[in-house]
Amino acid sequence: MDQQSDRRSGWSWWYLLFVIQFIVSLWVAFYNKVEPSWVGIPFFYWYQMLWVIIGAILTAIVYFATDA
């Protein structure tokens, strides 16, 4: 049945990399600040933009690791 065959359909420990993206995104108090700013851009803005890129890289890692 559906639930019993999860072994094949597959949980992977690599999926934990996704949890990081949620924690980072939802922990607003951590990044609601101006300093350290970067080329004049407040932390609040460049930090979140940086995580768009890191999130894409993490997703790519999960893709390659689980798609064998």
């Binding site: 993206q21 949620f22 980072v24 939802l26 979140q48 933009m49 995580w51 768009v52 999130g55 997703t59």
Partner: peptide, 13 residues
């Protein structure tokens, strides 16, 4: 921005 960070794990899974 955090919204669009979180949509892709959902899409993937």
């Amino acid at each position: 921005v955090p919204y669009t960070i979180m949509i892709y794990p959902i899409l993937f899974l």
